[in-house]
Structure formats: structure tokens, C-alpha cells
Design a protein around this nucleic acid. Sequence first.
DNA 1: AAGGGATAGTACCGTTTGGTACCATCTAAC
DNA 2: GTTAGATGGTACCAAACGGTACTATCCCTT
Lengths: 196, 196
Amino acid sequence: MPVKVGDTIDPEATRRRILKVSERIFYDRGIGAVGVAEIARAAVASKASIYKNFGSKEGLVEATLEYRSGRVHEWLANSTAAAESGRDRILRVFDLLLEWFQSDDFHGCAMVSAAAEERVTGGAATRLARQHLQKYRDFLSTELAHAGFPDASERAQQLLILIEGATTVSAIDHDPAAAQVARRVAAQILGQAHAT
Amino acid sequence: MPVKVGDTIDPEATRRRILKVSERIFYDRGIGAVGVAEIARAAVASKASIYKNFGSKEGLVEATLEYRSGRVHEWLANSTAAAESGRDRILRVFDLLLEWFQSDDFHGCAMVSAAAEERVTGGAATRLARQHLQKYRDFLSTELAHAGFPDASERAQQLLILIEGATTVSAIDHDPAAAQVARRVAAQILGQAHAT
DNA sequence: AAGGGATAGTACCGTTTGGTACCATCTAAC
DNA sequence: GTTAGATGGTACCAAACGGTACTATCCCTT
């Protein structure tokens, strides 16, 4: 059938509906393993709408990853804002990781997984994953500088390595505690030459 | 044609030839993105030989990942054996990571990438990746205990998180220096409550 | 010398996939 | 009202893939 009775015709809503569904499905089952038809079915959209909005499957994947990355960093910013100091905001990240790792459908960082699946280094997924990591570094670096740490750039990279390492190990081992192990190392990094 | 003139008929050699080729191709281009026919062509083998030896593409992937994991840990053991202390053998791992990250075709840990591509948590790739990480932990834990560190298990997990995090970040950013950043954190972990 | 096992190469099949075309029908603007 | 754009659903196509079957040829054992 054409358009459901009572539906508001809203191109922007259609686009968002597709993105929300593709975010979940691509994350759960992989990008190569899921066809456009399945996304359309799950989003209660037509393939025509997908190709009209995103041009190709690659375009849909790119838009989905951008959407995902934005949501992650929004969640990060909102969930750390309450902490009082830069040091606390950074350590809070590792508590958030633990919560994330404990969720049933967790199996790694969507951005990194997408880049791993699309091995070609010049691809869109790798570029977006790189931007994703850079946003992490920017966040960490800002908080470190704000807290008065010297070598904010070096320490931000150290913390990012801990974050990504904990994510990978936790996903492979199904062991959320990797977040706590990483947190202890982070506390050590933040412990010395500290803080305002 | 059937068999090349002058070739020795050696089933074991055929199997190894296929594995060597599939290791490289699967790592370079991904598992889902490469067909069995291409592996056969590159290995100068027939699809029949592949299916006779491995039963299915999944069987080939599984054998390839086992082969890969074995080679990595062999290389790790051989390349660290010369160091004098357990502490040095562990830090040497991070020097080896730097070398690895600097190679042109590096783009992450093959085991982790395979597990990321096959999202289903019960799959063979995830199981093999888990064994791969466990072998890392066993190595680190043994060296830590041998060097007289307390909490060898906790520290081994910390170091593994650094190793995997550096691998991921370096692959995404094309920045081999992540190995050196991780090494500095490792030295910090190994620095206190030290060593024999 | 003779037979059997292994092999590379090719052709083939059913299925899935990305992408396009078309249709029927609804909403929104005027 | 009437028109135009947007939409869900379906059918369709060419290409690619996993897997099987077959053939022609070579090596190794007896």
C-alpha cells in the first residue's frame, strides 16, 4: 500500500525513522550482512525512500554512522556534565563504559567495527571512525587542560587507548569488568602530576 | 588444466598454500568481501581443493584464523625470548607493536576484525578471538609472575587493554606512535610495586 | 605398466543483493 | 476541488556468491 491512513507526510520524519532502524540493525548484524530491503521492511519504508534520501547503500551507511557518532558524543557530554571537576568527568567516562558494556546487545564500538569491516583505508567508515576518535580526544584533552594537567595531548591519547582497548576486550570476552580495569589505569594516569 | 607439470602432489602443501593466501587476502580485504573463487585463483588451487580441505567457507575462515593466531603468538614468543627479564620481555611487546603498526598493510588485529565482522557472539571468529586474547593474557601473566609482580592477573588485563587499544587507535588513525604512547603507560604499570 | 588419488580449471545452479521502475494512494497547499 | 509531491509495496534485473559436478591430467605406489 501507498501511505498509511493518518500518517503525516514528513520527509524529515521518514529519514529519521530509517536512520534509527538502520543504526540498530547495522550494529546488531553487521553492514555487509544486512540488505537494504531488510532495512526498508524494518523501518516500514520503501526502498525508493531509502535511495531517494541516501542515494546508495554506501550513502545510507555513511549517514547512519554519522548519526551514531553524534548520538554517542551527545550522550557522553550529557552524562558527564554533572560531575564537578575535569578529573571526575574523565573518570565518569569509564563508569559509563561499564554501563554500556553491561547492556545485552553490546558487542563493541559501532564506528570501529564498521571501519574494520570496510578494510579499505580510504573508505568513508574509516574516515568517520577517525573523526569519532578525534572527538573523544578533543573531549579528553579539554577536560585534562581544564583540570590543569600538563601534557594534555599525551594523556588524552593514553586515555583514548584505554577506552578503545577496554571496548574491544570487553566485546570479545563478554566481560564488562574490562571497564573497571581500564578505570584503575586511568586513575593512575590522572593521579600523578595532578589537578586543580 | 589439472596438475602443473613438475608439481609434487602433496595434500599438506596444498592446504598450507591455501591457508597462506587466505590469511593475506582475508586480512587485506575482509572476509565477507572475498569470494572462495578468488582465494582459489590466488592460491593457484581449485575450489574443489578448498572444499575438500575445509568443507565450507566458514571452515576455511576458521582454519585461517587459527593459522593466523598461531603465527602471531609464535612470532611474539620468538621475538621476546632474547630479552633478559620478564619486565623487558613485556616492554618489548610494545616495541614489536610499533614495528607492526609501521608496516604498510597494517590495519588492525585480524582476529578482532574477524570477530567484529561476524557479529553473532556465538560464532567461530569470536571464539577464536577470545582464545587469541587469552593467549596474550597467559603470556603477560606468566612474565609478570616471573618478574615478581603481585596482582599478575590484574596487570595482565591492564596491559592487554593497552595492546588492543593501541592496535585499534593506530589502525583507525594510521598513527604507529600509538604503540609508543601505550608503552609509556605500560612502563608506568610496570614501574611501581616492581620487579625482581 | 597400471591403476588410483589428487589436482587445476571450468561450467553450472540456486540464492541473495544492490539498484530501478512502476503503481496505487494518501497528505498538503492553493 | 484539484493538483503535485511523497510514500509503501511489489516486481524485476543483472551481478556476485557459495557450493557441486565434471573433466583432463599428472604423480605415486605396487
